[in-house]
């Protein structure tokens, strides 16, 4: 049984209701290492919520909790009233995750990567699957890549194929893990625009984990800032820019001091 039956026609996905996400007192420890320290926030239905923070601050771990790939030490993530840690939740809510490295199936062509979910869940005939896959590829301007294999694609193309693969699932909640990392500024802007237009077109709730300041300030409805496992702020892009908290100011506008570099301060 498919965990979220996509509508019969691609355009009908606009009717799928968006879902809200509530993270409640989430704590995650790996042995003695505390990665998430009592993190709580809420994402409203249809919103783009960008979770920012320095590398190693626990952003991706938090995202893996939302999709049920990690078990919390304590606390929970609720998606539209369903606990994300429970397997059945994915039968009630359709969740797509765009992995940082794409996580495309290297042994399958781009077309088969997109068709896999539909075939495995027996969503329509092969002709209907073809229509859906080609539609998703068209949205992301990937029509010419259908027969290619992931190893033949550039970094930006892999990211777009990964987004297209999530899109054929017609998700109610779409999660992006560092969607613009390792991309040039123009391709990063393109991916940001795609994320925003997908929300506008399909009203899908989006949680984006990134340390890309431009992406966050341009497309986010709200931004959460995670530092050392603690959520130090949740607010709109305007509120973030106006913040006087030295940690936030330093994160958004890091100063280059070549005479007294940061790494030397850390050493002392």
């Amino acid at each position: 049984m498919p965990f979220c039956s996509p509508p019969a026609h691609p355009d009908a996905s606009q009717e799928v209701p968006a879902v809200g996400v509530k993270v409640e007192n989430l704590v995650k420890n790996f042995g003695s290492l505390s990665v998430l320290k009592n993190v709580s926030f809420e994402v409203k239905p249809g919103e783009i919520f960008v979770l920012m923070g320095p590398s190693g601050s626990g952003k991706s771990v938090l995202l893996r909790h939302v999709v049920g790939l990690e078990r919390a030490t304590s606390g929970r993530v609720m998606i539209e009233g369903h606990d994300a840690a429970v397997e059945e939740t994915r039968q009630h809510v359709c969740i797509g995750l765009v992995f940082q490295a794409g996580a495309l199936f290297n042994s399958l062509s781009v077309y088969d990567n997109l068709a896999l979910y539909l075939r495995e869940h027996r969503v329509g005939s092969e002709a209907e699957i073809k229509t859906k896959v080609l539609h998703a590829l068209k949205i992301l301007s990937l029509e010419n890549t259908a027969k290619k294999f992931p190893s033949d694609l550039s970094g930006g193309m892999k990211k777009r194929v990964a987004i297209a693969r999530s899109l054929v699932m017609e998700p109610q909640l779409l999660l992006y893990d560092e969607p613009t990392s390792e991309l040039d500024p123009v391709m990063a802007a393109t991916i940001s625009e795609i994320i925003a237009s997908l929300r506008d077109q399909y009203r899908v709730t989006s949680i984006v984990v990134s340390h890309d300041r431009d992406l966050a300030l341009n497309i986010a409805d709200r931004i959460g800032l995670l530092m050392n496992g603690e959520l130090i702020m949740v607010g709109t892009p305007a509120e973030l820019k106006a913040s006087q908290d030295p940690r936030i100011v330093d994160f958004l506008h890091p100063k280059f001091d070549l005479h007294n570099p940061r790494f030397k301060k850390l050493e002392t």
Binding site: F3, R90, A103, L104, N106, L116, Y117
Partner: peptide, 16 residues
């Protein structure tokens, strides 16, 4: 290899 390169995680998120 599928596990290390997150293809297994991708399958699980697709409920496969």
């Amino acid at each position: 290899s599928m596990k290390v390169y997150q293809e297994i995680d991708a399958l699980e998120t697709m409920n496969i």
